[in-house]
Amino acid sequence: MSNREVIHQYLKNLSTYLSRLNKEEATEVIKEIESHILDVVEAKEQAGEKVDANAILAGFGSPRELAEQYVAHMLEGTPPPVGFNAIQTVKKGITRGAYYGMFAFGVSVSTLLILVGLAKFFLPDQIGLWSSTHGNSVILAFAADTQPNAEELLGYWLAPIAVLLGLGVAKLTKSVLRVLKHHL
């Protein structure tokens, strides 16, 4: 590998290990270290010395060790024992899964509620909240026929209630996602 490739690869690996930091912080760290390395390379070239990227990088330690020092403050208390890194990766996977799951769930529920609310104006007879079997069960339905033996509960009130509920769910989803993103 050429010197340029060695340096590029080092910074790329460092960037991977810095993923616990937010993007801005990680970019800042990489930018500074890159500036340092290129400064050293340039000085050596100007002095007519042979440039050995691996020798220059040696002072920084491995990308992983270097990154660990930058993220050390994010680990509460003492750093985890060796071998715990794998568990952290899994935990992070769950958070990422939870993030997208929450997103899909929140968006679909709120969209559905808002649609139901709006559709009430166009299909007033097919959409409604019915109480059937003498109040023992409640049916929120988009039905082809009106519900037999059932009493409609809300009438046109369904529209604003469903829309407001939908907006409420959307807002709630947004705040939950913000919290999740912070821990991502």
């Binding site: 760290v29 500074e32 270290i33 340092h36 002072g59 920084f60 330690g61 060790e65 270097l66 020092q69 930058y70 050390a72």
Partner: peptide
């Protein structure tokens, strides 16, 4: 080393 300096600066 560089590896000591930069994280400390951070």
């Amino acid at each position: 080393t560089e590896g000591t300096l930069y994280p400390l600066m951070d």
